[in-house]
Simulated assay, not measured.
Amino acid sequence: MPRSEARVVTDRPHRYAKQLASHLGRKVETSWDEETGLGAVTFGRGTATLTAEPGVLLLAVEGEAEHLDQLEDVVGRHLVRFGVKDELVAEWHRDNGLPGTVQRNLSEDEPSAG
Rank of each mutant, 00 (worst) to 15 (best):
L98M: 10
V89F: 05
L106E: 11
T10I: 07
L59V: 05
R7N: 12
A52I: 06
Q103A: 12
R94C: 04
F82G: 00
L20E: 05
T49K: 05
P99Y: 06
P111T: 06
V8K: 01
L57A: 03
A52G: 09
R104Q: 14
V9H: 14
A52K: 08
T51R: 15
A113M: 07
L58Q: 13
G100I: 02
Q70R: 13
F43C: 02
A6P: 01
R81V: 09
D33G: 04
P111G: 04
W92V: 08
E35V: 08
D11S: 12
L59F: 04
A52P: 07
A48K: 01
Q70H: 11
P13V: 11
A40S: 15
V41W: 00
A40G: 14
V84H: 13
L50Q: 03
R7Q: 14
T101I: 09
M1R: 11
T101F: 02
G114Y: 03
V41D: 00
R77E: 07
V61W: 06
E108F: 10
V75W: 09
R104H: 10
G76D: 01
A113V: 07
G100A: 08
L24D: 06
L71M: 02
T47F: 02
L38K: 13
K27S: 10
L71V: 02
L59I: 10
G100P: 05
H67G: 00
E66N: 11
A60S: 15
L88G: 01
L38G: 01
Q19S: 14
S112E: 10
V28I: 15
K27P: 00
G44E: 15
A48P: 03
G83V: 06
